[in-house]
């Protein structure tokens, strides 16, 4: 497991798999062992930040929200009955916390309503199929940043659940099964929702494109 640091006197056993180790940490944390919880934080930190960052779209509050999630999870850890994986439970809290954030701040529309530039719209069209990140050169970094900004704006037009599902699948690498557990939906429903959300994403793109006379001739 990434970033694992053995706990004082209770590191992972050689035969213990990741899930067992995590369950043991959760039990220890439930009985008040903060070092065990610290280890859980260390394990889930990168993915949690990616999920929250993905949903909030690089908002400056990402770390604060992730921190709130981890504090909230710790304070309600005794109520966690281990029927699901700790991660699933944690990401469920994270998604709800992000939705609460949007409800409280009502920032989404304000932040993402800005129109896309024509150049940004054009860039969608030129993205080649099956482009793997691993083979891209450093010169692509600027272009990737622009693509991310563009994606942020398009995602900002989707509803919170659809956006979260797509981000979890495409950005954070969750499986459809994991997403289903987090949202309490069956696998096929998740797939259909994501498929339709992708369509809406492209619909936003087309809508923007239609507003620009010079871009009328372009098509997917």
């Amino acid at each position: 497991m990434e970033g694992k640091r053995p706990l004082a006197g209770s590191g992972p056993d050689p035969q213990e798999n990741g899930a067992d180790y995590e369950r043991r940490l959760v039990r220890q944390a439930q009985s008040g062992d903060t070092a065990a919880y610290e280890e859980l934080v260390r394990i889930h930190q990168p993915r949690l930040l990616a999920v929250v960052g993905g949903i909030l779209r690089r908002n400056q509050d990402v770390e604060d929200i992730a921190q709130q999630v981890l504090v909230k999870a710790y304070l309600s850890l005794k109520r966690f009955d281990m029927r699901s994986a700790f991660g699933t439970w944690l990401y469920k809290i994270a998604v709800n916390e992000c939705f609460d954030y949007f409800r409280k701040k009502k920032v989404r529309r304000i932040v993402y309503e800005a129109d896309l530039s024509e150049e940004q719209l054009r860039q969608i069209e030129v993205v080649p199929a099956h482009t793997g990140g691993a083979h891209r050169s450093r010169e692509d970094a600027a272009s990737r940043t622009q693509q991310r900004q563009l994606l942020d704006r398009l995602l900002g037009e989707l509803d919170d659940t659809d956006r979260s599902m797509l981000v979890m699948k495409e950005v954070t690498g969750f499986t459809v099964e994991e997403i289903g557990k987090v949202f309490g939906l069956n696998v096929n429903t998740v797939k259909v929702r994501m498929f339709r959300a992708r369509g809406r994403l492209v619909e936003v793109y087309h809508r923007r494109l239609e507003r620009r006379p010079s871009s009328h001739s372009r098509n997917t």
Binding site: R47, Q123, V127, G132, R148, L151, E170, V171, F195
Partner: peptide, 18 residues
Amino acid sequence: AAAQLSDRLFSAAEEPEV
């Protein structure tokens, strides 16, 4: 076709590793 386009968009906007 639209879903494939969105898939390409996500690939192109590869997120930096946290």
